[in-house]
Structure formats: C-alpha cells, structure tokens
Simulated scan of single mutants.
Amino acid sequence: MFKKLVAIEPVGLIPSAEKELYNFAKEVIMYDDIPLGSEEIAARIGDADAVLLSYTTTLDDNVIDKCRHLKYIGMCCSLYSPESANVDILYAQKHGIEVKGIRDYGDEGVVEYVISELVRCLHGFDQNPDGTRAQPWDGLPREITGLKAGIVGLGKLGGMIANGLRFFGAEITYFSRSEKPEAAAKGYQFLPLNELLSHNELIICSLNKNTVLLHEEQFRHLGNRKLLFNVGLSPAWDEKPFTQWLEGDNRCFCDSLGALGDEKFLRNPNVRCMQTSSGRTKQAFIRLSEKVLGNIKEFLNEGNGSHK
C-alpha cells in the first residue's frame, strides 16, 4: 500500500474507481484543476510516493528531482514511447521510479468520429450558417463505397479505422514502419508514403505524438482535391507546407486543437476542427479507469509500495 497518492489534476477516473484508490493508499488527494507550472506541480506532489496525472501536465526531470519520495507515476493517458510521453520516463526509471501508462481506451470513439465526419462531407450533411444544406464533396451525395483511403500509421487505432472504412466499402492501402502480415491477410496493401499520398483521395494520419511525416515533399505528392484527417495528439505535418496545401481545393479534419496545431487554422474555411477529443466517451472513461487501477494493482502485487 502507498503512504500517499496524489492525482495532481483531473485524470478521468469514474467515481467508483476514485473510491477504490483508497484501497491502495493510506491517504488520497484528488485535485480538480490543472497545476500552473512546475513549482505548483512539485508542491502538489509533496511527500507523496505515488502520483497520477493525465496528458495536460508535464512531469519533467526538474519536478521529479524535487519529489524524493516518489516510487510510482501512473499516467492516466496514452503511453506509446518515452519520447512522446509527458513524463520524463527515462529519468524517472534511472531514479528507481516506476512509470506506467495505458493505451487503447478511447479508440472506438475516434473511429466513430472519422466515419461521422466523412459521411457528412461526402453526403453534404453539414449545415451552412444560414441554415441551408452544405454542398456534398463531389457536388452529388456519395457513399464511402469505392473510396480510396490511405492510412498513415497502422497501429491499433489506425487498424480499427481501416477496418471501419473497409466495412463501408473503401479500398484500403497503408504506410507503416514495416509491412504487417495481418494487414495483408485483410487485403490491405502496403505502399511507400509518397505513393500512398498520391494514390488516395482520403488520407488518415494516426501517428504517435510529436511524429511528423508530412513535409513539403509529401504535400507535393498529396496534391489537390484531397481529404486529410489527423487523429493523433499533435500535427502530423510541417506547418508551412500544410498552410499552402490548405489554399487549394482540399479539406482537413481534426477532432482536437492539439491535432490541428494552431488556433489560427480554425478560421480557415477548409478546416473542420471540433476542438474536443472524440475518444473521451463514457465507455472510454470506464476503460481508462480499469486500466489505471490494473496498473496500480500490478505494481503493488509485485511487492512495491511504502507500506505493504
């Protein structure tokens, strides 16, 4: 059992999961706002031996160094790699602090977002400010059937989006760090990135945070009259060529501002951004809570913690 567990910001646990935290720590403190700066973060952690945080706060080496009692850091958000994390994982591990994150808790909502926005675009289900119906992408309503769709990053989420699009009849090709036999078994064809961009009308980027693959050369291959979705946590492109690409007859879709990259793009008529995370659903919070509690149980069952 931990001596003191602190959630330094809202972490998305459902009420029953918050109550269960008291089974793992003698003292539990839950903050309901986001700390402003490293000094406040360190002050909130204080002498705690366990901390929980979401994706909106960064635990860097300076903060970790000030919190000498820490033994466990629980990330209540996606952890794909140390390089993309909002916790300095390598520094924490070097000082004997366990860091555990979660994955694949909000993917279903993101798949629904992509299908929803794509259908609205192809059919013209959007509404203009004056109440009239928006024009469909092709002038006439159109199905997903036969749409050439390219997935950039065929991980768990990218694979789920590909499966969803295929269900509706899209033709799927993908680019990833390596070819995937399981994708080939489904009929998905691997293409080099530039060829993928040229070949497809719809491109969906599903990449780890801070991974940028679309540079000036890639936008040249992408060309005009294209639909581009980004479902990652940060832009998948360099800003300058992206800005130029938006001047053409193209459209970009992002659920969150983080994925879009800059508020100035919200005013662009070719950008559709909901400014919210489509993965933050009721079901996602349940899955998040189960995974966060599971990580704590695993850590303590391994014989860790201040007071067993």
Rank of each mutant, 00 (worst) to 15 (best):
M1D: 04
M1Y: 03
L5K: 06
I14Y: 05
P15Y: 07
S16W: 09
A17R: 09
A17T: 10
K19M: 10
F24T: 05
A25G: 13
E27D: 14
E40V: 07
R44G: 09
G46W: 07
D47S: 12
A50H: 09
A50S: 12
V51A: 14
S54H: 10
Y55P: 00
Y55T: 07
T57D: 03
D60K: 02
N62C: 05
V63P: 01
D65T: 12
Y72E: 01
I73K: 08
D88G: 08
L90Y: 01
A92R: 07
K94N: 13
H95W: 10
E98D: 12
I102Y: 05
G106R: 02
E108K: 14
V110M: 15
S116P: 04
S116Y: 12
V119N: 11
V119P: 01
G131P: 11
W137R: 14
D138V: 02
G139T: 10
R142C: 14
E143Y: 11
K148Q: 13
K148I: 02
L154Q: 03
G155P: 05
G158E: 04
R166E: 15
A170Y: 01
T173C: 13
P181Q: 08
A183K: 03
A184C: 00
G187A: 01
G187N: 02
F190G: 00
P192M: 08
N194M: 04
E195Y: 01
L196S: 10
H199A: 15
N200V: 00
N200H: 10
L202G: 00
L202T: 01
K209P: 01
V212Y: 04
L213R: 11
H215N: 14
E216W: 01
R220E: 15
K226L: 06
L233A: 15
S234I: 06
P235V: 06
W237N: 08
D238W: 03
P241R: 08
D249T: 09
R251L: 15
L257W: 02
G261Q: 02
D262T: 00
D262P: 03
E263P: 00
F265H: 04
V271L: 05
C273G: 05
M274Y: 04
G279D: 07
G279L: 10
R280A: 13
T281S: 14
I286G: 02
S289A: 10
E290L: 09
E290Q: 15
L293N: 11
E298M: 12
